[in-house]
Amino acid sequence: MHDAASARRDVLAQIEKAAGIAGRLPATVNLIAVSKMHDADAIRPLIAAGQRVFGENRVQEAQGKWPALRDETPGIELHLVGQLQSNKAEDAVALFDAIHSVDRPSLVAALARAMDRSGRRPDCFVQVNIGDEPQKGGCSIGDLPALLAEARSATLPVAGLMAVPPLDVEPAPYFALLAKLARDHGLEGLSMGMSGDVETAVTLGATHVRVGTALFGERA
């Protein structure tokens, strides 16, 4: 039987170990529990264990479960970690506290309009296609300076960069490259690392790790 509290302790212990190796405080790493495709009954045990930061991949799925969960437990922080269509920008700005997938000028413009209308200003991470993979979202490394300039010109609250390294290869070089890109552009936030590579990501500077399977178990 899956024990949410034990799973959370294990992941936090990984973060603490890796932060110690890197000479960092564990508190500088935000653990995002990625609850996509898990219902409210699967999420509540993690909330009961003390988890307050959660991530979802799709706006519509989050709209279906999080308003009620937030009513039950104040102080929940919700991050959008999946791709975002421009026509969903207004809904995303209304619901999420951070958006990790800003990857094109049209989305920058849509988010800026939604923020101006609503007065809400969720943190934004610019997603980089760090492995130059055609099937993945994210802007190319070459397009990053221009996209960051557009986001800043539109007064989006740019918190950092996000990336998903290629599968089945050593992720460390990709995490190190993302960290260098962030430094080069004066950004502190690094959204990188998932269940299988949390420790590597933290040792290389991750400020936000997006963990699903290690916290919730395998999805049915």
Rank of each mutant, 00 (worst) to 15 (best):
G137E: 06
A18V: 08
D168S: 13
V53P: 01
A94L: 13
A172F: 01
V102W: 00
L25R: 15
R113L: 12
L177E: 15
L25A: 15
M115L: 09
V102G: 00
V34Q: 08
A149T: 12
L156Y: 03
L78R: 01
S86F: 00
A176S: 13
E170L: 11
Q63F: 07
A7T: 07
I141A: 13
V209S: 09
S118H: 04
W66P: 03
G82H: 00
L161F: 07
P171H: 10
A48V: 12
M194R: 07
E90R: 15
I141E: 14
R183S: 13
M37E: 14
N87F: 05
Q14S: 14
G217L: 10
G186E: 08
F96I: 00
K88L: 00
P157N: 07
G196P: 02
T200A: 13
S106F: 00
S140G: 15
K88W: 02
R104S: 04
H79G: 01
G160C: 04
Q60D: 11
G212A: 04
A182L: 06
L31M: 09
R120V: 08
D143L: 08
K65C: 04
P173S: 07
P166Q: 10
A49E: 06
E90T: 13
L95P: 02
F175Y: 14
H208N: 14
R219C: 05
G138W: 01
L80Y: 01
F96H: 01
S106R: 12
C139Q: 05
G20V: 09
D132K: 08
V211M: 07
A214Y: 09
M115D: 08
M115Q: 15
I43N: 06
R52I: 05
A149Q: 13
S191D: 02
L12C: 11
V164K: 06
D41M: 11
D103N: 11
A27G: 12
P105V: 13
D71K: 13
L215P: 11
L46G: 09
V59C: 06
A109D: 15
M115P: 09
D39I: 09
F175M: 10
G23D: 04
L190H: 03
E61T: 01
L181C: 05
P166G: 09
R70H: 04
A220G: 15
R44V: 14
A154Q: 10
T207Q: 02
D168H: 13
I21A: 14
Q51H: 07
H185E: 12
K88D: 00
S140D: 11
R8F: 05
L80V: 00
L187W: 10
L12E: 14
L178P: 06
R24S: 10
R183A: 14
K88V: 00
